[in-house]
């Protein structure tokens, strides 16, 4: 939170179909509609979005957000190695990196910030459907930014963004993602 206007930049990247765009939209709604702060949500578009890697971004600020894209990500969520390779350069050297533990093996050169690893796909499978992978990631992401947003706001936004029949599963996945980070970080400490 070192930038002016309290600007906080989140970038999420992965393969198309992993729910990267949905995570971004849920975060945007959570921050702006339920938390009452400004946020801009954008996603990869055009030639950039071809070839597998998919990106979405959320810029959050208590002030006015002019430039809508990430300049230097405070938090980068990578759900695939390709996504990390393609977009990882935007991460601040001392930023926060959250990666899918089963997909990512090599990290950006010079990175010295906080690293969190979580097997999102495996946890989603345990919850009941690998399609819940993005909610697992969202739970973990929430745990990292919990000083900026309430769980209630994210859960409300999640409920507004997924089909009603899948809400229970998405909530469970969110919970497991959050708990995994909580548990593993505690162990590390």
């Amino acid at each position: 939170m070192k930038k002016k206007n309290e600007r906080y930049e989140i970038r999420i990247a992965g393969f198309g179909g992993q729910g990267v765009v949905t995570i971004g939209r849920i975060l945007g709604i959570a921050f702006s509609v339920h938390e009452g702060v400004n946020s801009v949500n954008t996603q990869s578009y055009g030639p950039e979005s071809r070839g597998g890697a998919c990106r979405s971004e959320v810029v959050v600020s208590s002030g006015v957000i002019h430039y809508p894209y990430v300049r230097e990500a405070d938090l980068f969520v990578a759900l695939s190695q390709l996504a990390l390779d393609q977009y990882g350069a935007s991460l601040q050297p001392d930023g926060t990196l959250l990666v899918d533990a089963d997909s990512v093996e090599t990290f950006p050169e010079g990175f010295r910030g906080d690293l969190f690893m979580i097997p999102t796909m495996a946890i989603a499978g345990e919850v009941g459907n690998i399609k819940f992978q993005n909610s697992v990631a969202l739970g973990a992401l929430y745990w990292i930014i919990q000083d900026k947003i309430s769980e209630e706001s994210i859960k409300k936004a999640l409920a507004e963004s997924v089909p009603r029949a899948t809400l229970e599963g998405n909530y469970a996945a969110f919970e497991q993602g959050k708990l995994f980070l909580q548990k593993n970080t505690a162990n590390k400490e």
Binding site: S32, V40, N41, Y45, P68
Partner: peptide, 10 residues
């Protein structure tokens, strides 16, 4: 432009 047309914002 695409920028504004596709961004989500409050």
């Amino acid at each position: 432009e695409e920028t504004v047309a596709h961004m989500r914002e409050r």
